[in-house]
Design a protein around this nucleic acid. Structure first.
Lengths: 243, 243
DNA sequence: CTATAATAGTGTCTAGATAACACTAAGGAG
DNA sequence: CTCCTTAGTGTTATCTAGACACTATTATAG
């Protein structure tokens, strides 16, 4: 039986060989009406030259979420974006070098934020590139499975959270909102049914309805672009993040 | 820049001080019409004498799920029960000794399986005991938060998975099924609405309906106990586990 | 000034799910 | 055969989901 002083405990902890812990971050965005994910091309073995989800080791005094934010910033230069823990993968042989447990996150970054940002090749990567989720290259480690899982989660959360607001500019039209849903779900949605669900309801006198289930507010503004009828602009009532 | 041979990579990995990784398992059951969770009383510092979720270190070549199974078996003697990964907690100071990242799981064990099993005090625990989820003691580390999270997840999965089947015997009455739902949700449910949702539908001629949405099958048997009308017995069509 | 191109915007019906609500049926014990 | 206890049963109102096609508004080109 071990001694029970804090010292003995400390010793007890170090008895076990420890795995390495990484965070991997699935970074989604929408570019050119397509759902994209950021991948890096590995510079080192194993899987040298193969595309992978960006990630890296968790520092010894660094929170997991902070590590995910750091990786995200290193790859995209972006801060303050939506990040959510996905799953922890830890099969003993998922990394051929040694035992590596990875805590995965997914991030949603809007095209707006991305504008003007430079993707950065890092010390670990030969190249960084956005890939269509519907046309992926071969991936290192178990990263194909991680992307799969991330996409399922993203889709699942579409209709009971505000998650898509992370991808949109502050103000947007209903058509844009619908288009983003369609891009993520990869199937067409009915225009009238979509609007019925999303659009704010008003009382007879046009005043805002008390228990309106809609997540949106009408801004009163219209967007005049192109040679067609201008669209009303909306924003989310609440950009708070529901896990 | 590092050399890029596998050897250099191996070295690269070990450059980082590594955190310890544990699994903690929230083990739920229902006893005496109450939702219970298994807790162990810590034998060692920190939090000596305080109640905690059972858990322990992941061995260097052990899968995370296997580690959770091992912990579960060490505490309850049970194998082959439902286990699902919950969340990974890794704030730098959640363990005052050193950096410990914990991957949490939750398990559902039926009273049936538990019958005749002896709870085992382990080397790390002074005592092992079932506690009501609605009357918990103070807990070590961030374990109160973990239990909270587990309960939310359990409740959330109640009505779109077969998860409650893990807690029930193979055959059960609708009243029992409803009671288990009520115990987990901690609120009463309407009997007729509950049955409308759960009960199998039949065609006019009494044959089983092709696209019956019910997850249950009527066994044809009845349970005759006590001094009242006997209940029809049902079982789940499909005990497969949906994550 | 009007025709056209392009996107915005609109209503109804059916089917199914949800939630509220109270009495009858079947068995065993006495 | 009465009583106790749990099993079992229907209707209505409201909401949600999905199918489905035409009109409205703007800018531009002729």
């Amino acid at each position: 039986m071990t001694k029970e002083s804090p010292q003995a405990e400390k010793h007890d902890l170090s008895r076990y060989p420890r795995p390495s812990v990484t965070v991997d971050v699935v970074i989604f965005t929408i570019i050119a009406d397509d759902l994209k994910v950021l991948l890096v091309q590995r510079k080192a073995e194993p899987f040298r030259g193969v595309w992978a989800i960006p990630g890296g080791f968790v520092h010894i005094d660094e929170d997991l979420l902070a590590a995910a934010r750091r990786e995200l910033e290193e790859e995209t230069g972006l801060r303050g974006v939506y990040l959510e823990q996905l799953y922890t993968f830890g099969e003993p042989n998922r990394d051929p070098r040694s035992r590596v447990i990875t805590v995965t996150y997914f991030a949603l970054v809007s095209t707006d934020l991305l504008r003007g940002q430079q993707l950065r090749a890092t010390t670990d990567a030969q190249a960084v590139q956005w890939f269509s989720m519907y046309d992926l290259p071969d991936l290192a480690f178990d990263h194909a499975r991680i992307l799969d899982y991330a996409l399922t989660r993203l889709r699942g959360k579409l209709d009971y959270t505000n998650i898509v607001s992370e991808l949109l500019p502050e103000e947007f039209s209903l058509s844009e909102l619908q288009r983003y849903h369609e891009i993520i779900l990869h199937r067409p949605l009915d225009k009238r049914n979509f609007r019925k669900k999303m659009e704010p309801r008003y009382a007879r006198d046009g005043s805002p309805l008390a228990n309106d289930p809609s997540p949106l507010l009408e801004t009163g503004k219209k967007r005049m672009i192109g040679t067609h009828r201008p669209a009303r602009l909306f924003r989310y009532k609440d950009k708070s993040r529901v896990d």
